[in-house]
Amino acid sequence: MDRIKVEGTQKDHQVLLYALSTCGWCKMTKAFLKDKSIEYEYVDVDKLNSEDRDLVNKDIKKRGGRLAFPTTIIDDKTLITGFKKDDISKALGL
């Protein structure tokens, strides 16, 4: 499964975003990260085949989340379901 990398000047944290290409909240999250110049990678899960979707579901569940979008994973440990700006900012030390 390919992750799409968005370049940014802030590279202190490893940020992975599971998103849907159609979702308004996901677009807001992407815009927020870009606005803060955070480097991140994302996967548009609606564009994946069912095997990869299942992998994403398992990955999110393994980290204690549930399959909802956007799911932001910061430094491989903090999982945030939904565009919760304050939680994302806190995890990124903004």
Binding site: L20, T22, C23, G24, W25, C26, K27, R53, L67, F69
Partner: peptide
């Protein structure tokens, strides 16, 4: 802007699946 995003998402899903499923859920 948010409205426009959601409407485009619905349009995309309708073209993709034949019905306008929720833009913020995985169909």
């Amino acid at each position: 802007d948010f409205l426009q995003n959601l409407l485009e998402g619905l349009k995309e899903n309708e073209e993709r699946y034949g019905y306008p499923s929720c833009p913020c859920r995985l169909a």
